[in-house]
């Protein structure tokens, strides 16, 4: 496998450096607009995971790992925790388990910010998907070393 990664293409590498931030931003964009337009946690998460996988192929495993900073399994854990926790606020208010809660925060310049438990849940899905996909890919790469 190392043979494959050694065949680094300069064009791909440079291209990735430029595209990668855009892809990650795009994945966030997909995640956030998901409630109203095509997108959402699954799609956003897959895009982000694919972006980091691109980095892996264009450069090498250590740099892709460094880009993520944390171990992908930790992302899975955080994602699951966020998604599970988002079910709880409804209980505090006295609604049924998992009833969506919406809060509107006024922001001085942008108008207002809409926060909700479905959004938190979707972020959990987003992180869970990134974590799972990257765990599989990283593990397979590591198995080769």
């Amino acid at each position: 496998m190392s043979r494959q990664f050694n065949m680094r293409s300069l064009i791909l590498s440079t291209g990735t450096t430029i595209i990668l931030p855009l892809l990650l931003l795009f994945s966030l964009f997909l995640l956030l607009r998901g409630h109203n337009e095509p997108g959402g946690g699954f799609i956003g998460g897959l895009v982000a995971a694919a972006a980091i996988a691109l980095k892996l192929f264009a450069d090498d495993y250590p740099s892709a790992k460094a880009l993520l900073r944390v171990h992908p399994l930790q992302l899975v854990g955080i994602g699951l925790a966020l998604a599970a926790l988002s079910s709880l606020p409804s209980l505090l208010v006295g609604d049924n388990f998992f009833t969506a809660q919406w809060w509107t925060l006024p922001l001085p310049i942008f108008g207002e910010l809409k926060l909700s438990t479905p959004l938190i849940f979707d972020i959990g899905v987003f992180l869970g998907v990134i974590g799972t996909v990257l765990t599989v890919i990283f593990t397979l790469v590591e198995a080769e070393h």
Partner: peptide, 17 residues
């Protein structure tokens, strides 16, 4: 559900469990 993408609203709200 305060969302216009019905598929996503189902995923994260109606059938979140």
């Amino acid at each position: 559900g305060y969302g216009r993408n019905v598929v996503n609203v189902i995923l994260v709200d109606f059938r979140a469990l």
